[in-house]
Computed example of a mutant assay.
Amino acid sequence: MGYGSLGDVSYRTYLHGRPIEQVMNHALGQYSTSWAVFTLSRPTVWMFGWLS
């Protein structure tokens, strides 16, 4: 994966971000705060962006 494909990862991360945040929000239930969702979803979003 070279520098030319970095934009692709960025766009795929953008596409996966909102749905993954919604899943995390639902999974956390009553413990859902904006910081908790952000902290838990970022690594997952980056992993999905890189793998797709």
Rank of each mutant, 00 (worst) to 15 (best):
M1V: 07
M1P: 02
G2R: 06
G2C: 07
G2F: 14
Y3K: 15
Y3S: 12
Y3R: 15
Y3D: 05
Y3T: 13
G4C: 08
G4K: 10
G4M: 13
S5V: 14
S5C: 05
L6Y: 08
G7S: 07
G7H: 01
G7V: 01
G7F: 04
D8Y: 05
D8F: 07
D8V: 10
V9F: 09
V9C: 09
V9Q: 07
Y11D: 06
Y11I: 07
R12H: 02
R12V: 10
R12L: 09
T13I: 08
T13P: 00
Y14N: 08
Y14I: 07
Y14E: 07
L15V: 05
L15I: 04
H16Q: 11
G17P: 01
G17L: 01
R18H: 04
R18A: 10
P19K: 05
P19W: 03
I20W: 00
E21N: 05
E21P: 02
Q22M: 08
Q22P: 00
V23F: 03
V23G: 00
V23A: 05
M24V: 15
M24P: 00
N25T: 08
N25V: 00
N25A: 11
N25I: 00
H26M: 10
H26T: 15
H26Y: 13
A27K: 11
A27S: 09
A27I: 04
A27R: 13
A27C: 04
L28F: 07
G29F: 05
Q30A: 11
Q30Y: 04
Q30P: 07
Y31G: 08
S32H: 05
S32G: 04
S32Q: 04
S32E: 04
S32D: 05
T33A: 05
S34G: 03
S34W: 12
W35N: 06
W35G: 00
W35C: 01
A36M: 10
A36H: 11
A36C: 06
A36L: 10
A36E: 05
V37A: 02
F38M: 13
F38V: 04
T39L: 15
T39C: 12
T39M: 14
L40D: 08
S41H: 04
R42V: 15
R42L: 15
R42M: 14
P43I: 03
P43H: 06
T44N: 06
T44K: 12
V45W: 02
V45R: 02
W46I: 14
W46E: 07
M47F: 15
M47I: 15
F48H: 12
F48C: 14
F48T: 13
F48Q: 08
G49C: 10
W50P: 00
W50Y: 12
W50Q: 01
L51R: 15
S52R: 08
S52N: 13
S52T: 07
